[in-house]
Every structure is written in C-alpha cells, then in structure tokens.
Write a protein that binds this DNA or RNA. Structure first.
Lengths: 228, 228
DNA sequence: TGAGCGGAAATTGTATACGATCTGCTGCAA
DNA sequence: TTGCAGCAGATCGTATACAATTTCCGCTCA
C-alpha cells in the first residue's frame, strides 16, 4: 500500500484555500495557477485541481484561457465599475431586509465579526482584515435570509477583492471600519431606512476610494499592452 | 482510424444543448442526467459530461448529489420566491439603464425577438416561446451594458424556467406578451421611468401567476413528503 | 545583429481505467 | 410472510495515460 487511498483534500477544500488566499491578497490578480503546481502543493491529482479551477472560474475569481491555463482574474476598469454597480443594486435593499429580520443572535455574531476585523487590523494583518471586511457584507445578506441574493453578493464581494488589489488608492488604508459599526447600529435598532441608506453610502465611499481612471496614453499604456 | 479524433462537441456545447432543453421544458425538473447516458447521446467521454454538469450546477440548473448523480434542479417554494425577489432587485433598474442607452439597432433586434416569440406561440411551440420570453429579459440586460448584472439575470431567468415548470398556474397560458411590447415601447421612447416601472410590474405579475402556496397538511402532504 | 524558423520541453485537453459507493435483488431464517 | 444479510450490477469519484497545443530556446541565414 504505497500511498493513501483517499485524497488529502476535496475539490471544494481546494477552492476554499485558493479563494481565501486570493481574498487575503496572498495571490495577486494575474498570477498563474498551474495545474501541476497546485496539484503538487495539495497532493491531489490534476483532476481535482481542474474541477476546482473551473469552479472558481464560474465565480469570476479565475480566468481560464484555452491551452494556456488558469489565472487569477484581472478585472478591467469597466468590470470593476460593473461590480460596484451590481452591488449597489443588491446590497442596500438586502441591508434593509436584514434590519427587519436580525435577531439578537445575529447582532451578537456581527459584533464578534467586527471585533475580529479590529483584531486583524491591530495585528497589521491587512489581508485577513480585508477578507473579514468582505465577509461582513455576506453575513448581512445571510441575515436577510435571501440565499440567492447572498450567493450573488458573495461573488461580488469576491471580485471586489480583486478590484481592490488592482485599483485601491492608498495601499495601507483599509476600508474604514466605522461604516460597518454604523451599519451594525442600524441593524441593532431595526432601522431599515437607515440600514439601506448606510449601505448605499458605504458602497459609494468604497467606489470613491478606487482609482478607476483610464490609464491615459504614453509609454505606460504601451507597456501595459505588451504585458497584456 | 476507427473513430474521429476530435470530440463531436465541446463541454460548452453540451451545456448549451442541455440548458436549451431544460428552458424549453423538454426535460423536467427532477429528471436524472446520468453521465453514461448523456455521454452516449453526445458521443463524448464522461469527462466532458462531468464538466458540463458541474458547470450547470453553478448556474443552479442542475443539482449534483454525491455518489448519486446529477438531476435537473427542483426549486423549493422558498427558492422560487427568492429568484423573483432577486429579479425585482436587478431588472427594473437594468431596464431603466437600457432605456437610457438603447440604440436604433437595439430596438430593431428586440422587435425581431418579439416577432419570433409570436411566431412560436402561433405554432403552439410553448417551449420555444417560453425560452424566447426569457431571452428577452437577458437581451434588455445586454442593452444596459452591464455584463455582470446580465450574467446574474441570465441565471435568474434560467431558474425561473424551472420555477415555471413546477408552479405555473395555467399550463397553457404563457407569459402575456403585451408586457414585452409595452417595455419595448418604453425603450423606443427612451422613457426610463416608464421602463423601470413596467419591468417591476411585469415581474410582479409573473410572480402572481405562480402557485406558491405551501401545500397544506392532510394526506397530500404526507405523500409529498414521501415522494420527497 | 536581428529576424525567421524548427524542434524539444512544458502545459493543458480528453479519454480511459480502476476503485468506492450506492441500489436493488435474492435467499435464508425467524 | 417479514425482515435482514449479502451479493451483483450500476453509477459515480479519482487517478493516470496519452494526444494536442503552446511556449521557449537555439539555430540558421540574410
């Protein structure tokens, strides 16, 4: 009996680990995810890795080019705008629904969540802080009890992470945690109007912290074109 | 040389054909999609079929149960509501954007589209008519030039097809095409307010034509429980 | 020196093989 | 007759093998 029969990890676990790494910016947009390399790292066959990569492609986190391989998606400026456009359609009204339905337990969970965010920030673990910050938005969708919308928001938050990696203005300053606190207060108070408005403002503020101007002409754009 | 080297169809084409069949209600929700059977039909290996089924699973059209196989998804009543909830978040404001951006060519395409819908109805081809009716909504999203939102709407329209197969009240009456005509008029006139309002009303009307009451108690519920 | 052109190495795409799990039948015992 | 154990068939999950494509390096020749 040379090797273990059962694989060390399932395809889903591979997706989780890769996704987490991208969310925490340990893997940059544009990075190549070679099948051989990944399968070596996780100790599984390429079959599972391919499944995982295909799965992530559907979430928009990975782009697969035929006969060339899988890469962490590099959203264009247009796609970046679209992501926040879509979020602004879904999240404010989802926050409203959450405010109407949040239980005492939900509030406690969110408080705990925010505490973890702060802890990560204090530890200067910006990657983790960013990931948790995204999870906060998903958590609100879950409270709203809209699984379908929740899945969409999860995708959008995921892609937002890529957008932030590429277009964030101040590399050190992370999404102001005040916004999350304010949202939590609105949820606690059951103030639906306030929650909707805060979420709308929060998303707008996030978008404003991105540098989404088209890179103008000049030598830079040429190099970009060559580097693809 | 016994068989052709290249596969007759790619994974994506398999997805297309299966998806179309489900959209046209030629395959019912709950139907099993056996890997062997599908691979025989299309003349490809199970590898590609598995890829295709996994892909459809992400779109929500197929549900895969471990070691049991793939089935056309049977949305629950809750999921059915969620689908229309999500559509009501996305589509009205997308219709507004479409009204603001529609070109003369876009309008012409939509007119052609609606003509096809009518033709299918006249031919009593309800399956095709239903599919085209869904495509109309996707076409509007495309005009709005929001690819991200368009993808979500495509998924939702797709799931709506399953919901309709399961919960539609009048099996013969198809979605009133008047609504699509009215929408087209609003787009042609560039009346954004009107387009948004019409889409909202259209979705509400669709939802109302569904029978989403919980099956009450009694012997029926017992049998339902046993039948799944 | 630099452009053009093999050709080998690396990487992905597809098919097949084998093992694990589930399903349903058959037979035996209570 | 009923219930359960066990075996056979079917189906899915994973790994491996092979084919197709791309990439990259070095060579030649202008």
């Amino acid at each position: 009996m040379p090797t273990t029969k059962a694989p060390l990890l399932s395809a889903h676990e591979i997706v989780s680990q890769l996704t987490e790494a991208v969310h925490e910016h340990r893997i940059q947009p544009g990075a190549k995810l070679s099948e051989d390399e990944v399968s070596d790292i996780f100790g599984v066959s390429r079959t599972l890795v391919r499944q995982a990569l295909r799965s992530m492609e559907h979430g928009g986190l990975v782009t697969i080019e035929r006969n060339r391989g899988a890469f962490v998606t590099k959203p264009t400026i247009t796609e970046a705008r679209e992501v926040f456009e879509a979020r602004s359609l879904l999240e404010p009204r989802t926050a409203r629904a959450a405010a109407e339905r949040a239980t005492r337990q939900d509030i406690a969970d969110l408080e705990c969540h925010i505490a973890n965010e702060h802890a990560a920030l204090d530890r200067k673990d910006l990657g983790l802080a960013l990931k948790l910050s995204g999870d906060f938005h998903v958590a609100i969708a879950r409270i709203a009890e809209q699984r379908t919308v929740e899945d969409f928001i999860r995708q959008l938050v995921s892609r937002s992470s890529l957008v932030i990696a590429l277009y964030w203005r101040h590399r050190d300053a992370v999404c102001e945690e005040d916004a999350h606190h304010a949202l939590l207060d609105a949820l606690r108070a059951g103030d639906a109007d306030q929650a909707e408005e805060l979420m709308k403002a929060h998303l707008r503020s996030l978008l404003l912290q991105l540098d989404l101007r088209e890179r103008p002409e000049g030598p830079v754009s040429l190099r970009d074109a060559l580097l693809r």
